[in-house]
Amino acid sequence: MNARLATFALLTAAGLSLMAMVPYLANAYWLALGISLLQYTVLATAWGLFSGPTRYVSLATTAFFGVGAYTVAVLGEALPWPVVLAVAAMLGAALAVLVGLSTLRLSGVYFVIFTFGLAELIRQLVVWFEVNKSHVLGRYVFVPVTQALIYWQLLALAAAVFALGWLIARSRLGFALRIIGEDETVATHCGINTTIAKVTLFVISATVMTLVGAVMAPRWTYIEPSIAFNAMISFQVLIMALLGGAHRLWGPVLGAVPLTLLFELLSANFPNTFTIILGCIFLVIVYLLPRGVVGLIERRRETSVPVQRRLPA
């Protein structure tokens, strides 16, 4: 097992350093594509981190992403870059604690409804504040962050989110969450504080999303609330994670990569049919791939193994 782990670590390190070379080798177009791929990979994996084990359908991705991006828009020039990132992360975490504590005690539907409107709510509040109090709507982001730097930061975030997911799965928290996902009543009776477990995970996932938003912000140079809080991000991340299969740490990547490429193609060539195709992918997931691509692979693996061990229920 240790040898396997060592090989795995070596392979990961090799893969990461290979991917870190991309900014030196690729031209601007491929670098931009790489940034999109990494962005959605991190967002979808972070989404799966929380929603995979708990099975809560979260539509709050945009809210956290936007908080991160807008924090950079406001503070980007006033503070050094690492401090800006830290402030963004803290704001995202604080928001996640508030949302989590008020909705995660309840059944999943309330959470869906609440997160459904959360991004729009925050956008309205930001617009209201900017118009009435600070009197600026729309801000320029002039920070010394190049495309290559964005790419490396996202790569680091991707590595961090996978490491986090791997660690969580092996911790008490991960074990507790698997039980909650199977049956929340049982989990409560085992003495698990389900609310704290769910909120903790939600905060971790939300902080990563906020950081992605903050890291991506310099790409726009001009940010206004409707750019930062673009609701589409929530939906795209949701179907990427579900298409890949959110119940495995590696699942969301399998959805994020092909769908990012597909969306890139669609928005360039067929902007009008974009929403229709997004809707069709939703239906495909629900009717054909309820456990995602990962589920498909798992099923194939199961049938190829002749002797199936079934534990008594």
Partner: peptide
């Protein structure tokens, strides 16, 4: 009932996008 809830949310979400896309076009 929870499984149905998640499924119906996702399915009607897809339906919403399709309807919206049709109306947009």
């Amino acid at each position: 009932r929870d499984a149905l809830e998640v499924d119906s949310i996702l399915a009607t979400f897809g339906l919403a996008f399709i309807l919206q896309g049709i109306m947009l076009s």
